[in-house]
Computed example of a mutant assay.
Amino acid sequence: MSNNTDVRLKYHNSGKVKSTKPFKPWRIVHTEEFENKQTAREREKYLKSAAGRRWRKNNVKKGD
Results as ranks from 00 to 15, higher is better:
E44N: 09
H30T: 01
R41V: 07
E42A: 13
K18Y: 14
T39K: 13
R41T: 15
H12F: 05
Y46S: 04
K48S: 15
K16V: 04
L9C: 08
Q38N: 14
K45F: 07
T39M: 11
K48Y: 14
K24G: 08
E35V: 00
H12V: 01
E42T: 09
E42F: 05
F34C: 02
L9I: 03
K45Q: 14
K21E: 14
L47W: 03
A40I: 03
V17I: 12
L9R: 06
K18G: 13
P25G: 03
K10R: 12
S19W: 06
V29N: 07
E33T: 11
K18F: 14
N36C: 02
Q38T: 14
E44H: 11
K37C: 10
I28T: 03
E32R: 06
I28W: 00
N36Y: 01
S14K: 03
T20Y: 12
P22M: 05
T20S: 11
K21T: 06
E33R: 08
T31M: 01
S19Q: 13
V17E: 15
L9E: 10
V29D: 08
E32Y: 01
K24N: 11
V29F: 06
K10W: 04
I28L: 01
K48M: 13
R41D: 13
E33Q: 10
E42M: 09
Y46L: 04
K45S: 14
K24D: 07
T31F: 00
E32T: 05
K18S: 13
F34I: 02
T20M: 07
Y11W: 11
K37A: 14
Y11E: 15
I28P: 00
H30Y: 15
K45T: 14
I28Q: 01
V17W: 10
A40F: 05
E35W: 02
K48N: 15
K18W: 14
F34Q: 10
Y46N: 05
F23S: 08
P25L: 02
Y46F: 12
